[in-house]
Design a protein around this nucleic acid. Structure first.
Lengths: 222, 222
DNA sequence: TATTTCCTTACGGTTTCCCGTAAGGAAATA
DNA sequence: TATTTCCTTACGGGAAACCGTAAGGAAATA
């Protein structure tokens, strides 16, 4: 079994259970942090001291509080950890159950397992840890039914997300166009952006932009 | 201390900690349900058998799964419980931290305490249970800074919510007007609705309707 | 090179949103 | 009753969204 595991989870009510699972699995060194920044520090320090972690178990969403945070979510933490210690194994334990989000965690951030917090997630988590230890790949907790092959949400790419983000921040078409020119994102003509929004509306069966953003929020895209 | 407590919480990773708190407080009878419907059944049964619960601790959001649910969220459960056993004490333990939502729990559903899931919520929960037992009123966990006196969100009423709901479903002004006439909601002139939306935009500092709905979603209003 | 195809962008007409003004009516007050 | 105040609604003009068409250009193909 893993010898040294880091848990990043802000909710104390949950971290208790996660640590309990690791103790049950006889993991000798278990560290727990409530902030992503703190997590990265621990990972860096462990690498420097030549005693790196074997596994990171992290949540995705972290509450903001008085402390100023550099890394604000689990995605950020994983991305930063990948730079410091590319071989670190990673399990995400989160309430999120949108296939788009989860797929991108595997594809873009190279996580090893995803466990959705639910009614039987403790068992699922335990299984995922063991499977990860045995070098299995792309482990999903069993309540997530989507397959990696279905194309349902694959065509929604970061370009679309950028548009949706700006729309949800009150930008009008022309402002989005200007912003894209600033950021060198193409295509950036108002007409192209308009057409892309139109495709999104068809895809999500939205009547208008307001409806579209409401749906995007529900899907956790923005 | 309370003699009989019911916990309604779907996430096993959290319910473990909640039950632990109750055990620490020497509560002799602790029941736990993962579905709201199941919770209501238990409350009804306990009333019928003349052994009612002293306290209900419930989450707000529950995951949907294959089971068809009648009560889909904590609000529903509390509302139903109030009809069956009006004197039941109620603590809500949820991730929600929007003052609008929380205030309405106290004002409309008569809950006794609200504890926000966070980095030190186990202690907060323990305190809230003790305070509730001592008949204190309107107990809030300490990370929630708003006061009941500030008028910040009080003026947002169900009329506004109705507008926001329809907007988020893709209705245009004229359709909202027609819908309101059907439902006998007044005022229902397009102009009045327009003006009300305008007030909401000023209030939430939104540039346009799209922005407004994005904000409303973030606030959990729709 | 010539042709096709696809993508980006521009343009124009219609609808809806946006925002100010004002008319009409109900309730409150004098 | 007369006046004031507030609320609802209508109207109009400009801005932005909405939607179809088409021009221009790049990449792929023949």
């Amino acid at each position: 079994m893993f010898k040294k595991v880091l848990v990043a989870e802000d909710l104390d009510s949950i971290s208790i259970a996660v640590v309990q699972v690791l103790e049950d699995l006889k993991v000798p060194v278990i560290h727990h942090v409530k902030y992503c920044d703190e997590g990265l520090l621990k990972i860096k320090k462990a690498v420097l001291e030549n005693e790196p972690y074997d596994l990171l178990i992290t949540d995705l969403s972290f509450k903001l509080d008085h402390r100023k945070a550099n890394l604000t979510c689990g995605d950020d933490l994983i991305e930063a950890a990948n730079k410091v210690q590319p071989n670190l194994k990673k399990i995400v334990f989160s309430i999120e159950d949108k296939s788009y989000r989860i797929k991108s965690l595997f594809n873009d951030l190279g996580i090893n397992a995803y466990v959705s917090k639910g009614r039987n997630s403790i068992t699922e988590l335990k299984n995922a840890i063991e499977s990860t230890f045995n070098n299995e790949e792309k482990i999903l907790s069993s309540d997530l039914s989507f397959s990696f092959n279905d194309k349902t949400l694959i065509e929604i790419e970061s370009y679309d997300i950028s548009i949706l983000k700006l729309l949800s921040q009150g930008y009008i078409l022309e402002s989005i166009s200007k912003e894209f020119k600033n950021l060198s994102i193409t295509p950036n003509g108002t007409s192209s952006i308009e057409k892309r929004i139109n495709k999104l509306k068809i895809y999500f069966k939205a009547n208008n932009n307001v409806h579209l953003i409401a749906i995007a929020k529900d899907f956790g895209l923005v």
